[in-house]
Design a protein around this nucleic acid. Structure first.
Lengths: 267, 267
DNA sequence: AGACTCTTGCGCATAACGCGCAGTCATGCG
DNA sequence: CGCATGACTGCGCGTTATGCGCAAGAGTCT
């Protein structure tokens, strides 16, 4: 027997919500033979614990489980990342095969590619995989490998072996930090090594990194890229940062954040 | 300029909801300089289109996009699948390395394994991957390959190549149909070939299929399994169906659906 | 036994909701 | 040019869900 009646009911509510996708207060109330108040209390508690989301007449499952940390990262500097992703998506020609790294900015690119038509996408990241999983018009190849929970990225021998079986028109890399002389900075040596391999398998290499990542070196593993790569950042980048890259012969693109949103005419 | 003022506002609302994660009616009302009624109308429309979910004071993003078809499959015969998954999870010993197929039943198994401690899971399915992506105590290996959107499964040369680099203590396979003489029935020959390979790489093979799948052959691609595999189904299986498997020397397990849920005392 | 915690049901004030009506603006047709 | 049409918005009202306080029941520990 479950430890506690009310606790068990909450778990069951959670289960119903995640499977059915939605559960109304009234339904739940009838199902358990308790008052709507009790159900409401349960839902309030579950919501407070961040385990589901409240809707008007009931509750719904939370996409939740992973991505709590990732989603947060996705939202920060979202406009910049989106602008970068848009520019990157525009570079891709019909019929090409591209390689997408893990990371939120590259994830934003994957989102842009949902509307693409004649395209093959290979990826080492779970984010891109998830973005494109239901898109029938895009051929998706997953390189596989060991999943790193934090970055939602695949690394290791399987990934590298898969890489050796493919080449790409373009590769889009993410980074924890980028410097003009060092290249890409990451937390994990396996990850930097993989990025180097990825760059080597593609005709054109792009690094997608919004302005805040330029000149930053939060970790100590580095990936050096072959000459002729393109840094795609946003217009908020400091001129000095950009200049450092240009001096080294790196092409720098400043993606513009376009202000399509409605007029915020505060009344 | 966007086509229409109200249309643009709705898109913006949607964008705010997906990035911020949540947007209140009042905030939106102030942001756009319109009445709460208008916002409510927008939200109602967006909700009706299935593009976001309504909450009490506002709206929130919908995890939405994938799984529409998959989630539906997940819910049907859910109790049976869960019982099967529980039994399967109980078989796995600490320190083992197991291989999980794609499919909703195996996905339920992956869900059960979220609480496992010392375990390595390899998978050819996106569902299992997603279930275990945020679980730090489980080591996850993705075999990669071509993603089939419908079944959310990886197939093809990359998957097979990755398989050749690993062996497993147990493999848990899904099936569109199972018969005593034919084995596993699937829609795609690549998928059946892969399942055969998977079975060959594991010391023990389990096929997870709820009662409705027994004796069914909805498609015409077949995977034959090596002797000594175990069929895991539920107690609602017809005796004749079960007998057919037992006669052929297949071990059959009937997982019991336990009725822990609250009394459905309809008033 | 008595105090305490947890939980539940009930009643009520409040806030959010949906709906209908009327006014505005742009478009299109006679 | 005038008027009908459709889309959109603001406003008011009745309906509904919500949250809170209070009291009662069940179980536990001292």
């Amino acid at each position: 027997m479950p430890p506690n009646g009310s606790q068990a009911r909450r778990e069951e509510i959670l289960r119903l919500a995640t499977t059915t996708g939605l559960a109304s207060v009234e339904e739940l109330s009838r199902h358990f033979g308790v008052t709507a108040s009790t159900i409401r209390r349960d839902l309030a508690r579950l919501t407070a614990d961040g385990r589901l989301a409240r809707t008007y007449g009931g509750a719904m499952a939370l996409n939740a489980h992973p991505e709590a940390s990732l989603r947060q990262r996705t939202t920060e500097a979202y406009e910049q990342k989106r602008a970068i992703a848009r520019w990157a998506a525009a570079q891709i020609q019909p019929g090409e095969t591209v390689l997408l790294d893990a990371g939120s900015t590259v994830g934003a690119l994957a989102h842009e590619l949902r509307t693409a038509q004649d395209l093959t996408v290979a990826t080492t990241g779970l984010t891109a995989l998830h973005e494109l999983a239901d898109v029938e018009s895009v051929h998706v190849e997953c390189l596989g490998g060991t999943l790193r929970p934090l970055s939602q990225a695949f690394v290791g021998p399987l990934t590298e072996a898969a890489l050796e079986r493919m080449t790409f028109d373009r590769v889009f890399l993410s980074a924890d930090g980028v410097t003009a002389d060092g290249g890409i900075c990451e937390a994990d040596l396996r990850q930097t090594r993989l990025k180097e391999l990825m760059a080597r398998r593609a005709a054109r290499t792009y690094v997608l990194a919004h302005a805040a990542k330029l000149g930053r070196a939060p970790f100590h593993a580095w990936a050096t890229l072959p000459q002729g790569w393109t840094l795609v950042t946003d217009t908020s980048a400091a001129e000095a940062d950009v200049a450092a890259f240009v001096e080294r012969g790196t092409r720098v693109v400043l993606a513009e954040v376009l202000e399509e949103p409605a007029p915020p005419q505060e009344g």
